[in-house]
Every structure is written in structure tokens, then in C-alpha cells.
Design a protein around this nucleic acid. Structure first.
Lengths: 341, 341
DNA sequence: TTGAAAGCGGTACCAG
DNA sequence: CTGGTACCGCTTTCAA
């Protein structure tokens, strides 16, 4: 007595053979009119075919098409955490951009265990995706292994804070963006220095965010503030925040490397009865929608997600030569830095 | 001088024919050992095949497999807004649950225009998905049209606040959940009534959230508070909040039908210099991670997203008969209702 | 302009 | 236990 349902037995969908038979033509002709090409078809037969298509409710089977063409018109996406609003926004834009070009998006969020990621990537490749979009943080190391497994689809690394040799990368101009906010804090609000809460990157390559933060201090002729390395999450920001704010020599201004961290930091400040911005100025990096609604609203530099998504898709769909594409960030001044609103 | 890249020309991947040739067996045998079945293979040849597979780095082409089997092991997902943290969490869990059963997830977020949604669904179907997962809010009407277009994959509606005749649905026990929070506010904190900010549903069917809110008042022997209908977004909550809080007869307690709305409401309260919870008690519905970090942290009823996701996937993968599955919500008491922390 | 037929990479039935 | 082979649905070359 299984709870399984009988195989549903929905009526077999019409195939191009049915259409051909119904219209009294060959299957080749059906193909020609459906894709209009590569050969011309006389207007008369064309009509007959179209009628047959409409009558039978024929819809081409894209799996079969993919097999024949060797292209699925499908892209794979791997992000470390689909729950991070930044990636959520990014994913949404990627999906849009892909759809505009007739591509669909196969999603994976890094599961548990370090191999999970590699396995997802392999699975995506087995599904014959036309390209792989990976968030840099998660995957660079894995890509090598992927190759070793003999599968190498076109790859683009999104959210790249710096170029990755050999790969196409897309990212914000992180150094410039970070330097803008930090400069704002240093200049307009005249803090002695700005401390930095930054995500603990797996890769050795310098994070543009840290570079920008250093540059801004140098330009203002100040010594840099403290650095705390932690996860890119709210909790990471909270913990790093508590540590920073309870230490001797409490900073008067802190920037974070993600919105999520800033939100955690805000909470840490509240717990310690520090007022933002009066006792502590805060600014974040990413500029997702969420930052407009925090208490107080966050001053932030926004990543141009839409443009980046479009570039990533274009890169991969058109097989552009691998380069590092960089997009300007936008400074959004709100209450958390001390500016009046 | 196009910026296109030459077609990359990566070496053709090994096919089962290559493996068969290399191992000196027929393609059928290769198939039997790779899937071990449906026919047995002698240990000796089995080894030879496996060696060949390893040597050539053979990976089965799932597109071809799908065509042959008539199943892509792929599910389609349609949500109204992938940016909403609730859907982000849900999506993540769905993806996990699907992956555990060997399925991949094809994502779509409702694009612009009312037809966009239908078009995405059709596109998913053309890609031969084995099942369609839709967020109720977005799509119920569209499903009828889908059928009219002659494509009807198994469907499950997630986030269903009430049964939808003819469809498999999965949802929280919204009435019970809402009744819990409202009861908490009415009982422990002794408000005269609780006002409700609720998403403007497209469907006529009663939203369980509203029902629960009414029930709680009835049970406490109180008259219901005011109702504001608005979008499920932060902005929706903000606007509804301002209206409610500036009106005559300002409520002392408000529940919202989503976390996002509560966050907007919190902001509205701040703008009007109302303290939460002293001047206004707030509670939300969804219980995403974000609610832990608001100021003050939100009292909320949490949707059991993981369980719901697993159920939705199971439903569709195993073709269960269409029923309405309901999952208990959990009350999370935090600061925004006035409880001490 | 149209039709016949050879793939695309696998699956699985039918003989041997 | 293994090999040969007919599909799955669509694309496209080659001939007519």
C-alpha cells in the first residue's frame, strides 16, 4: 500500500513527427518553419505547418534540440550563500539578463562540506551547461579540480575583488568604492582613522576593499585603523564589532566589507549602548536594499549589480576573451556616517 | 573586428562509444555498468569498462540521457521575488532538498509585465522539467493558462496560505501561527486589539493569516483592530505603517504578514518618533534570519522552511496525490512585542 | 522548395 | 553474460 501515485499518464505531447504527418510534409520542413531557417519554405506549406502546430499545440522539445545542437542554452550558477541579500539581488539580475538572451539558470548554493561545491559544479557540467558562473569567494580553487576532472565549460567569476589569472572576472571597482566611503568618513567627518571589518577571504590575492581602505588613509595622511577578519555574515559582523568596540582604543568609525556585517555591527553597538552615528560612525559595502531600512539607515557604497550581471552573462554567452571587467561603485550617503538627512 | 572569441574548440568529451571501443565491448554493456543495471555484467568486463571510463575521463551526457529516458531530473521554480529573504531561504532549502534526490533547480523570478511569469513557466516546460514549483502568490491564475497551452507538468504550490482545489500545496499553518502571535500580544501584553498589515493577495481565497488574526481576537473576546492591505515589501510595510500610525485612533500593537513589512513598519515608527515596544508593539510573520538583527529584534512566527521545502520536493518527485500539506509554525519571542529579553 | 536520412549520446529490448 | 540495434525528438546535409 504505497502512497505513490500512478504515473499520471498525461497524454504524450505532440512531436515534430506528428506535426509533419498532420501537415503532410517532412519533418525537415517542420524544422525549417519553426526555426525559420536555415532553408526557405514556400508560403503555402509554411501556413499548413503553422496550422498544424497550432492545432496540435506543438512545442519543440528543448532537450532534444540541445542534444542535436550541442547547446542547452542553460547556464550554471554557484554562489556560497543564496541567502545573502547581495547574492540574492545578484542572482535575480543574472537570471533576468540570461533570460533576455534566451538562457535559463541552473542554481546551486554551496552545500555542506568542502566537496559539495565541487560536486555541484560537476553535476552542472554533466547537465551540459553552456557556461558556469561562480562567485569567486567560493570556488576558485575548485575550478582547477574541475579541469582535472576533464570538464571545462566557459567560466566567469563574478564578485571578483581582483583579477584572477586565466579567468574572466567581473567585479566592482572595490578599491575605488572603499576609498570613497573611507575618504568620506575621514574628510567630512574628520575621524582620526577608520577601522575595517573584512571578510576572511580564502584566496591569497589582495582584496580590493582592503587596498582602497589603505589608500584612503594614505591620501588623508592618516594612520590606518584596526582590522578585524571575520565571516561575511551578520553574525560575523556582530562578533567582530563587539571585539572592536570593547577593546582598548575603541574606534570612532568602522567600515565593513559587506552589508550583512554592518548590520551585525549595528547590533553590537546597540548592545554596548553606543549611539550610531554619535558615538560610532558606520558604513558598509554592497548597498543592498536592506541598508535603507536599518536603524539608522546605512551609508554605503553600492555595487552596480545590474550592470555586472549583464556583463557576466554577455561574457559567457558570447565567449569574450577572458579579462577583468570592473564597474564603478556609487556612494550612498545616509545617516549612519553622521551626515544629516 | 569583432570582440568575439574563436569558438574555444575544447576537445570533444569522451562518449560511451569511445568507452565501448576502448574497452572492447558494446555500448550496451557500458550503459549496464555505468548505471549498474538493468542487466548484470561479469566482473571481468566490468573492470575493463571501469578502467576505460577512468582512463578516458568519461562522464555520461545527461542531456542525451534525459532525451532517452524522458526525464531530465530537473525541477522548475517560479517565485515572485527572489530578493525577498523569505524566498531566498526557501529557495536555498528547495535546492538542497532537490539535490539530495539528484534533482537540479531551474530558477525564475517573475520578471516585468504580467505575461513574463507565464512565459517563464512555458520556457521551463519546454525545457522538459519533471515538475514545477510555484509560489502561490504569483501563479495560480497562470497555471490554468499553462494547461490551455497544452503543457501540464506535475505542480506543487509552495507558500500556500490555504488549499487550492486541484493542486498539491504546501504551506505553514498560517492561521495557527498568526493566532499564536496575536494571542501573545493580546494575552501577555494586554493590548485592546492588534492591527494587521497584510499583503494584498491576488487570489480571492481567504488568507490563513487573516483568519488566525480574527480567531485570536475572538478567543480573547476583543474586537479586531484595523487592517491595512499593501505589498509584501519593506516599502509596503513602511507606507501602511505611516498611515496606520498617523491615523486617528493609533494602534498600540501591529502584526504584519511578512518580515519585510515589519521592517518597513519599524522604520515608519522611528520616523514618527514612536518607540518600539514602549509606544508600539510589533510582531511579524515568516521569521527569517533578518528579524534577529532589527532594532529592536522582532518577535515573529517562523515558517518551517526546511520541512516545507523537503515536503514540496518529495511531493513532486514522487508524484504524491495532490493534497494540502500544512506545517506548524514556531513562535519566537523577542523584544519588539515588549517582552524583556 | 521539399524529402530522406544520418547523426547527437544514451537506453534497453531482443537475440545469441 | 554480451552484442546488435531500434528508438528518444530535433537539426541539417544531400539529392531529388
Amino acid at each position: 500500500m504505497s502512497s505513490e501515485h500512478p504515473p499520471a499518464q498525461r497524454p504524450r505531447a505532440a512531436t515534430r513527427t506528428d506535426v509533419a504527418r498532420y501537415a503532410g510534409v517532412s519533418t525537415a520542413v517542420v524544422s525549417f518553419v519553426v526555426n525559420d531557417g536555415p532553408k526557405p519554405v514556400s508560403e503555402a506549406t509554411r501556413r499548413r505547418v503553422l496550422d498544424a502546430v497550432a492545432h496540435l499545440g506543438y512545442r519543440p522539445n528543448r532537450t532534444a534540440r540541445a542534444l542535436s545542437l550541442g547547446s542547452t542554452k542553460t547556464l550554471g550558477l554557484v554562489v556560497p550563500d543564496a541567502t545573502n541579500p547581495f547574492f540574492a539581488e545578484y542572482t535575480q539580475q543574472l537570471q533576468q539578463a540570461a533570460a533576455d538572451l534566451g538562457y535559463a539558470l541552473l542554481m546551486t548554493a554551496g552545500g555542506p562540506g568542502p566537496d559539495a561545491e565541487l560536486r555541484s559544479m560537476l553535476d552542472l557540467c554533466d547537465r551540459q551547461i553552456d557556461g558556469l558562473i561562480v562567485a569567486r569567494y567560493t570556488a576558485v580553487g575548485r575550478l582547477e579540480e574541475l579541469h582535472r576532472h576533464g570538464t571545462q565549460p566557459p567560466v566567469v567569476i563574478i564578485d571578483a575583488a581582483a583579477p584572477v589569472p586565466g579567468y574572466a572576472t567581473v567585479g566592482p571597482d572595490a578599491a575605488d568604492g572603499m576609498s570613497m566611503v573611507v575618504g568620506h568618513l575621514l574628510g567630512l567627518h574628520d575621524h582620526q582613522s577608520v577601522s575595517l571589518i573584512i571578510g576572511d577571504s580564502v584566496e591569497p590575492v589582495a582584496d580590493g576593499r582592503e587596498t582602497g581602505w589603505r589608500q584612503a588613509h594614505a591620501q588623508a595622511g592618516r594612520d590606518i585603523g584596526q582590522v578585524a577578519r571575520t565571516a561575511f555574515t551578520r553574525d560575523g559582523g556582530y562578533r567582530a564589532g563587539r571585539e572592536l568596540l570593547q577593546g582598548t582604543d575603541r574606534p570612532t568609525a568602522v567600515v565593513t566589507s559587506s552589508d550583512l556585517q554592518a548590520i551585525g555591527l549595528l547590533m553590537a553597538a546597540r548592545d554596548l549602548h553606543l549611539r550610531v552615528p554619535e558615538d560610532l560612525a558606520v558604513a558598509s559595502f554592497d548597498g543592498t536594499e536592506e541598508t535603507r531600512y536599518t536603524a539608522p539607515p546605512l551609508t554605503t557604497v553600492r555595487q552596480p549589480v545590474t550592470a555586472m550581471a549583464a556583463a557576466a552573462i554577455d561574457q559567457i554567452v558570447h565567449h569574450r576573451p577572458p579579462t577583468h571587467q570592473t564597474f564603478p561603485m556609487e556612494l550612498l550617503v545616509r545617516r549612519s556616517c553622521g551626515c544629516p538627512t
